[in-house]
Design a protein around this nucleic acid. Structure first.
Lengths: 351, 351
DNA sequence: AAGATTTATGTTACCGGTAACATAAGGCCA
DNA sequence: TGGCCTTATGTTACCGGTAACATAAATCTT
């Protein structure tokens, strides 16, 4: 072969003096073939290094064993972890993964979905989606196999695997409150995205439950990226009554907050308590020690494809799986709770 | 459709009262169709939302427009960047990308290559490979389209895009020397991998060129991961005449070095100078400010696929492209050069 | 031992596109 | 006005697998 293996099962058949169907049977482990015939064919196949053409098989079976993965940006380590979880499970189940990054742009979403549909993917894992996403809703309506991971839409008629973002945000905000902070700001992703919205809600609810005013000027929204953290922190820390604590909607945002803080010469946690969300490698670095919320994105990804493939392979049972994973608070140093525990107790008692 | 669009060009043809070939022609913008016939067909296609079956086309054309990307671990941000560069360029050229992570395990490499071959990829981008990699060498021999990115094999009969790793390592080591350090250790990836080997060589050569002994006990090798950095630094910093400076073969390794250093209560750069390689987001964080070597992995990825697709589409001109990109030193604070410049000048003059 | 059943294998159609090769109709030219 | 060329479209085969159905030989029944 020069690059296309030009041998076909008919060639093998001719050489083995059988019909091509028999060869096909051998290759598919069909029991209806005599042992010695099977051996003769297999020997030839091995000797010649014959590989059946996947394109032909795909066509005949109407199947590609390909899964489309849609993320916001594969460069973001969060999606890297997710992708790896998906990849491992998919390979284990005999599927390959094709991916694309939408950057949250509607037109990219649209065209990538079409591109992947063109390729003939058997199903989709969407890890990027706004709360309202026509391209996805369209597929759901057509009952095309798909699952959302770390995302939800407004509607509920599809399968998803998400973390309990609301609770994660609530818990970490509460942790700040319990540590004695009152002036707590949030730098978050957009609220037209599930995670952004839920984290904002969790934050707001935690404040309300502890009789702390939700100040609009303590809410900064952008995307989940580092630049947003930098801008948000720069803005917030210029205020006359600047916050004592910042809850970043993602560790990546927190990274940007660190950028700003170092520039301003402030210390964490002494001058500002900072917490994040995701528990990325960055957060666990000993120089950073960011208190955050653990996501288990690898697990989410794995669960997601598993559900998807299940659906692809037994689509008659078309019911929907909704998985909500528990969030877990990961307490390190950046929240300053170890410094302020005593004050916290007092405050909690009075609240 | 339930998930498989069951319309075919023959259905459209029947409705438009033409032959299926005419429909095929319209879909492929073949000029040999009358305008009004074309319009009639196009109207039907749009009205019914007809999409030609990619599997059938793939079979007929012996092409899949799919590229296989092989990385070590997609979770590693370095590969994330690379993947994104590849993805963007591939999409732009009408290709999709399917990926897998080998973790540098030979059997995974072998089986993933086969899996992707099964899918029918038109070519490969290998961003993971040891210096000797039978699975890849095998493909090269068969003249299967492929390109290596950030990796080379021992042989030279294939296309690749790499950074000048030797020079990058040389320069950054020299920078440490110029800053006045003499006891310089290295924590590197394995030397059966191109990048690991070249970086080690660059380091050694820089020392030799400045009449500094290459001490074997200052060389710690593992993989390019964080844990290696942690272990290496822990070991090196326990030595009686511990190094004044550490060159980490990757920023990710450097991250592990930070872990160890914080635990030991040492300061960077006062107690230890630290430099990395890759210029990841971590390195540029203001809390970290790691001096490192910029890789331009996004660019490398893009160039890589471009060469690959070129080859796929005009394979007659089967010659090989060898691209070596310039490395660039990114000087931040972790190397301590700003503190020691003066001493450095003196040392350089005497060396 | 004849008919029923099982086993091994072959024949043929099909999946849904593309493409080489007809063919029929209209325009052009001498 | 008949032959030639061009243009629009159709016929048929093909890409390389899978699968339903057919058939022939071997084995099992009774």
């Amino acid at each position: 072969m020069t690059s296309k293996n030009s041998l076909t099962i008919r060639d093998i058949a001719r050489m083995a003096k059988v019909s091509h169907t028999t060869v096909s049977r051998v290759l598919n482990n069909d029991p209806r073939v005599q042992e010695k015939t099977k051996k003769r064919i297999l020997d030839l196949v091995n000797k010649l290094g014959f590989k059946p053409d996947a394109r032909a098989r795909n066509l005949a079976l109407k199947k590609s064993n390909l899964i489309g993965l849609v993320v916001t940006d594969i460069r973001n380590p969060f999606y890297g972890d997710l992708a790896r979880g998906i990849e491992d499970k998919a390979h284990q189940l005999g599927y390959n993964v094709i991916f694309c990054s939408t950057d949250h742009k509607a037109d990219r979403m649209e065209s990538y979905v079409n591109l992947m549909l063109d390729v003939g993917v058997d199903g989709f894992v969407f890890a990027s989606s706004r709360l309202h996403e026509p391209a996805i809703e369209n597929l759901i309506e057509k009952r095309f196999p798909l699952v959302l991971v770390n995302r939800k839409l407004k509607s509920e008629n599809y399968s998803y695997v998400v973390l309990d973002n609301f609770k994660g945000a609530y818990d970490i905000t509460k942790h700040l409150i319990d540590s004695g902070y009152r002036r707590i700001a949030i730098i978050d992703g957009p609220s037209n995205v599930f995670t952004g919205l839920e984290r904002l809600k969790g934050y707001q609810r935690a404040l309300k439950d502890h009789d702390i005013d939700v100040r609009p000027d303590y809410i900064f929204q952008g995307n989940f990226a580092r630049a947003t953290g930098y801008e948000g922190a720069s803005r917030l820390l210029m205020m006359k009554d600047r916050p004592e604590a910042i809850f970043s909607g993602s560790d990546y945002i927190a990274m940007g907050v660190f950028d700003a803080i170092e520039e301003l010469g402030l210390k964490i946690p002494e001058d500002l308590a900072l917490v994040g969300f995701d528990d990325t490698e960055f957060a666990s670095n000993q120089r950073i020690r960011l208190t955050t919320v653990s996501q288990r994105e690898y697990t989410m990804g794995g669960l997601g494809v598993q559900i998807l493939i299940d659906y692809i392979e037994n689509k008659e049972m078309g019911y929907v799986h909704k998985v909500v994973l528990e969030s877990k608070l990961v307490i390190r140093e950046s929240c300053g709770c170890k410094l302020r525990r005593n004050g916290a107790r007092a405050a909690a008692a009075s609240g």
